[in-house]
Write a protein that binds this DNA or RNA. Structure first.
Lengths: 114, 114
DNA sequence: CTTGACCCTCACACGGGTGTCAAGTTTTAG
DNA sequence: CTAAAACTTGACACCCGTGTGAGGGTCAAG
């Protein structure tokens, strides 16, 4: 599929898809004229990238983390540490958000009642 | 308390405290020489501001939301809507993060086992 | 009064993913 | 073959909370 198709399917802009490639997160083959072509599997990969981005991981971190998804690659100890550290970060972030959600929910409730 | 004290207690930089004031989120009185003084209650308020900021609310939204915390003020219908909408957004964000956390946890697990 | 710590305002820079525009090339439909 | 649609690279702008530094004023202790 070409970039417009992948964009339509995933909801990521073409700009973002090119950026992901530039950051080494997403591969493409090129047609004779230089236009990008993606395999079907790119759809899932883009979804994954977007999930991780929206969780606050930056592209460098995602680049570290992504390789261990498709191949059984590169089991360096620092990668394990990196994964664990990001997992902790996300967990903490979720806890913070839950607390904030409580606050907002309390406000909404008070608004209804008061 | 002066800005340095409030900064030390809350962990927010003086720069941030001034910014919160500039955005109408945090009030201060001024000494004769123009230096800021905060009441004790500012500590809690700064914590709240930081929670909301880290939840992804921007300062304009927080400014809309904060008034209903201390006084029983300004019960406009659009504020109710605003609160509810932000609550929804945070809830969705938490759901997304939980999914991402699953992914990361799966990776860590696979790393351990594989 | 002096000194050093603290504070003031103003202004510029950053990160980093994304939007957007320009100028040119490729692909596809008619 | 031609025109339109889609794509290419490159560059610049945005957001917005925060860091940082300059140049100067305030405050409390000696």
């Amino acid at each position: 599929m070409r970039i417009g198709d992948l964009s339509a399917v995933t909801g990521a802009s073409a700009r973002s898809l090119r950026y992901y490639e530039e950051q080494g997160l997403l591969a493409s083959t090129r047609s004779g004229g230089g236009q990008r072509h993606y395999p079907e599997s790119a759809v899932e990969r883009v979804g994954l990238i977007q999930s991780l981005l929206s969780a606050g991981l930056n592209s460098a971190t995602i680049q570290d983390v992504l390789p261990c998804i498709n191949n059984e690659a590169i089991r360096t100890p620092w990668l394990a540490e990196r994964l664990t550290s990001e997992l902790d970060r996300v967990t903490r972030q979720i806890d913070d958000l839950n607390r904030t959600r409580e606050i907002l929910a309390g406000l909404v409730e008070r608004y209804r009642v008061g």
